[in-house]
């Protein structure tokens, strides 16, 4: 087993407890009947994951996790779900077969990712534990605009494309006839 894998470093009691809580919250995301509880569980999962980062000494990653994911993106999820006021019956739930297929796909993906991480030397510069903990905010930001400039910009472009795509999808749902019979 290679020593550099974040997932498999030394584990203490704090990490175990937080990990179990995070898993419970993650189960809550899929298991909740109401969409709002689901979104709140998602927020709890993201928040608890940040504690795992803290426990590993990756303070910057942890803080950014809370700030961006728990503090901004999860808030937007909760906000939108509340705004739309989805009733449990109106949420489309894939059938028994669909759930099994999705679960299988997710598990397979997880296994593949872990297997790739376990190959020594494949992700040498990015994911070594010592790399993660030693980096200060300054070093991380410096890397963003020097070594990893291209991936950084590419990710930004990808997100922009996703936003444009979301707008297109959201627009196509609303037909003009629906719009005219809005509120009285």
């Amino acid at each position: 087993m290679s020593e550099g894998i974040v997932v498999m470093g030394q584990v203490n009691l704090f990490q175990v407890v937080v990990g179990i809580l995070a898993l419970a919250a993650a189960i809550g995301v899929v298991h909740s009947k109401s969409a709002v509880s689901s979104a709140l569980s998602l927020m709890a999962t993201l928040f608890l994951t940040a504690f795992l980062y803290f426990a590993k000494g990756a303070y910057f990653a942890g803080v950014v996790q809370v700030l961006i994911y728990a503090g901004a993106i999860a808030v937007l999820f909760v906000f939108i779900v509340m705004l739309l006021d989805l009733k449990p019956s109106r949420v489309a739930i894939p059938g028994q077969k669909g759930v099994a297929l999705l679960a299988f796909a997710a598990t397979a993906m997880f296994v593949v990712v872990v297997a790739l991480l376990a190959v020594p030397g494949l992700f040498e510069p990015g994911l070594q534990e010592s790399n993660l903990t030693a980096l200060s905010a300054k070093a991380i930001s410096y890397n963003f605009v020097s070594t990893y400039m291209l991936p950084f910009q590419a990710t930004g472009f990808l997100i922009l494309a996703a936003i444009v795509g979301v707008i297109m999808l959201a627009k196509s749902v609303r037909s003009p006839s629906n719009e005219s019979r809005g509120e009285p």
């Binding site: 709002v36 803080v63 950014v64 809370v66 700030l67 728990a70 503090g71």
Partner: peptide, 25 residues
């Protein structure tokens, strides 16, 4: 006493909005 205390502060205060949203819902 952290090098990231500014970011920590922002991260914690960004959770305040949840209280309001959860209370209302």
């Amino acid at each position: 006493k952290s090098d990231l205390s500014f970011l920590f502060l922002l991260a914690i205060t960004s959770l305040h909005v949840f209280a309001v949203l959860i209370a209302g819902w």
